[in-house]
Write a protein that binds this DNA or RNA. Structure first.
Lengths: 86, 86
DNA sequence: TAGATATTTAGAATATCATCTAAATGATAC
DNA sequence: GTATCATTTAGATGATATTCTAAATATCTA
């Protein structure tokens, strides 16, 4: 779970998650929303991937990223557990 | 909200939150659960305070820290918003 | 196969973070 | 008020993170 919290600590990565809520996207499409280089974006995507928050799948020449929604529920539960009183 | 995510990124700070679920505590009492110096603990507490996750109140010679539970609900909502599909 | 596009990897620069020791501040008790 | 205990602040150090450019890898098309 540590990798998840670390991944969420950066605002650009959180924005990537927001963007992916609109649907799967290639790295290039995601990159249009950011000022930094492709290499930097690739690094952020790698961080999200390692945290299991996104999934990458090659589609021919492109690589499509999507939210790993199945993991999100666990994350929310963990957070509620962290905050909850019980 | 950025300060909140940043505050949660460190495992020691998350552990402090867990510990405070058992009730309010002085800095010294919290410190017993950690190997690092009081100065370092103070820094972590400051980070949590700035994120509005804990509240400090002087009780004579001591300072008691407590969870700022009223904020936790907002935080969970923000997180669910980040992950949610709608 | 060569050239073009998409993405990642390598290596380096700068910024931020966690931690330390030492010094400062606040409160109590004698 | 001086000594003592609790906590914070200052300043420094080493580790980690974000970012860059350049080079490498993968795929497609002609």
């Amino acid at each position: 779970m540590d990798t998840v919290y670390k991944a969420l600590a950066d605002p650009s990565r959180r924005k990537i998650l927001e963007i992916l809520k609109d649907g799967d996207m290639t790295v290039n499409e995601i990159g249009r929303h950011f000022p930094f280089s492709g290499a930097t974006l690739s690094h952020h995507l790698d961080t999200l991937k390692r945290a299991n928050l996104v999934v990458a799948q090659r589609q021919g020449q492109y690589i499509e990223y999507s939210l790993n929604t199945s993991v999100f529920e666990e994350v929310v539960k963990a957070l509620i557990g962290l905050f909850g009183k019980e």
